[in-house]
Each structure stands twice: as structure tokens, then as C-alpha cells.
């Protein structure tokens, strides 16, 4: 009975650790969906048309991310991080850093084969740069997405139907929002501004890690105590018969 209780207690302790052990893996990916418009400069139709375009493309998705600033981070490296968090193989990320007037394109391995580096640069120069710098962000995304899909499909020897996509895009420049729409959740605001958790959340995570480490130690000592006090000792028989105890 005692042994059963010890095993049960150990099992409960191990089960209680499972959520903490898998908490990090359950975290949502940094980038999901086709548009992550953190700067709030794209229209709803652009997002819908981009999703429709991605559905028509075979073997790759173009994701568009907008940020106001990157705080000194390299746009290319940041776009690559986003791509790695979402679809490192067959995806592509177009990053637009509105406040820094910078942009970057990151391609997954499969698409990079169809679109080598020099083609990427000329594609951006011809179909993105001018409307982007003129702050016509919807138009810039539309031009680039259509040209990108056409070029990738051609390189793969496939055909793609682009009719009806981005047809309702207004060619006038999208005005920047007059006021930044504040967020009530401090962590969400930090995510918007700095692309990472707020310091308070960071401390909490550190404490969670300490707690997990503490539980590991607790289990270790629980097993030690179990082996020392609760484990049934094997009966060693040194004495045989009824004679005096042997001593060697």
C-alpha cells in the first residue's frame, strides 16, 4: 500500500510538470496568416486579395508584415527571423518598415530557387519601390504580389490565374493614421513597439523557469527519500541454521 502511494505521488508530480515542460513549445508562432499589419497602413481588401493569391499559388505563400520601426535591427535579418518562425521552406516574407522607409524580402529555399537574388532586387525595384516611397502601401503590395506570383509561376513552368485580384485597389496614397491607436494591454503594446515581451513578462518567465528547476530538484529528493526510507529492503540472510552468527 505504501509503495502504491509513493508511485501514485511520483506520477502526480510528473503529470503536474507536463504543462510547464511543454509551455514553451505550445507558444504561438511569431507570424501566422498572410498579413501582419502592425503599422495599420494596409486596407482590408489587400489582405483578402493576398489570401486569394496565395490560395492560387502552388508551393509557396507570400506574407506581408508592416512595422513602424525596428529600433535599429537590420530589416533583412528581421524578415528572415519572421520567415523562419512561419514557413522557412516554401514561404516568402515582404517586410515594410514604414517609419524607417525601409523594406526587405526574405524567401524560403523553394521559392529562392525560382527567384534568385538579382531577380528579387529587380522585382522590388520595378514593382514595389516607387509606390512604397510614395506611401501608396496597398498599391505597392498589390504590384509586388502580382509580379512575384507571375514570376515564380513562370520560373516553375506553371500558369497562375491572376484575374480579379487587387482589382479594386485605389491608386491614391494611403494616408498615415493621424493618431496611434493605443492598446490597453501593456504586453501587446510592447510587442508592437519593440517586437518582444515587456520586462515584467520576462521576469515572470524567469520565475517560471526557476519554479520548474525547483520542481526538478524536488523530484530528485523525493526519489532519494523514497529509496532511503520507503523502498522495501531485500532481506539478506547471513545466518544459516541455528548456529552462531558467522563473521568473516
Amino acid at each position: 500500500m505504501r509503495r502504491f502511494l509513493c508511485v501514485l505521488a511520483a506520477a502526480v508530480l510528473c503529470l503536474s510538470l507536463l504543462p510547464a515542460a511543454f509551455a514553451e513549445e505550445d507558444a504561438a508562432p511569431l507570424l501566422s496568416g498572410d498579413v501582419w499589419d502592425m503599422a495599420g497602413v494596409l486596407g482590408d481588401t489587400t489582405a483578402a486579395d493576398l489570401a486569394a493569391l496565395n490560395d492560387r499559388m502552388s508551393g509557396g505563400r507570400l506574407m506581408v508584415v508592416t512595422r513602424h520601426f525596428l529600433g535599429g535591427k537590420d530589416a533583412g535579418a528581421y524578415a528572415r527571423e519572421l520567415l523562419d518562425s512561419a514557413n522557412p521552406e516554401g514561404g516568402a516574407v515582404l517586410l515594410m518598415v514604414i517609419g524607417e522607409e525601409d523594406y526587405a524580402l526574405a524567401l524560403g529555399e523553394q521559392i529562392a530557387k525560382a527567384l534568385p537574388a538579382e531577380s528579387q532586387q529587380s522585382l522590388l525595384a520595378r514593382n514595389f519601390r516607387t509606390p512604397y516611397l510614395n506611401r501608396a502601401y496597398d498599391e505597392a503590395v498589390a504590384d509586388f504580389a502580382l509580379a512575384f506570383a507571375g514570376q515564380v509561376s513562370r520560373a516553375r513552368g506553371e500558369s497562375i490565374d491572376l484575374d480579379g485580384l487587387f482589382g479594386r485597389i485605389s491608386l491614391s496614397a494611403t494616408p498615415a493614421p493621424q493618431q496611434w491607436s493605443g492598446k490597453s494591454d501593456i504586453n501587446a503594446m510592447w510587442q508592437d513597439f519593440f517586437g518582444e515581451d515587456s520586462p515584467e513578462n520576462r521576469t515572470d518567465r524567469g520565475r517560471e523557469a526557476d519554479w520548474e528547476g525547483g520542481l526538478g530538484t524536488l523530484i530528485f529528493w523525493a526519489f532519494i527519500i523514497y529509496f532511503l526510507f520507503f523502498r522495501k529492503r531485500k532481506r539478506r540472510r547471513y545466518d544459516f541454521g541455528h548456529g552462531p552468527r558467522r563473521r568473516w
Binding site: F69, G71, E100, F194, E196, P199, T203, G206, D210
Partner: peptide, 28 residues
């Protein structure tokens, strides 16, 4: 080391955010 890891990490995150804010201001 534990204290530096827990509280120091939060402080470093704050300082990094301050530096990023300054950079963004300089960019504009």
C-alpha cells in the same frame, strides 16, 4: 547569478527598449 538572471534580464530588456526608442526618434 540567479538574481542577475531574473531581475537583471528585465532591466536589460528595459534599457534595450529605451535605446530602440531613441534610435526610432533619431530615424525620424
Amino acid at each position: 547569478a540567479q538574481l542577475e538572471e531574473a531581475e537583471g534580464a528585465a532591466l536589460n530588456a528595459m534599457l534595450r527598449a529605451r535605446a530602440e526608442s531613441a534610435y526610432n526618434l533619431m530615424t525620424v
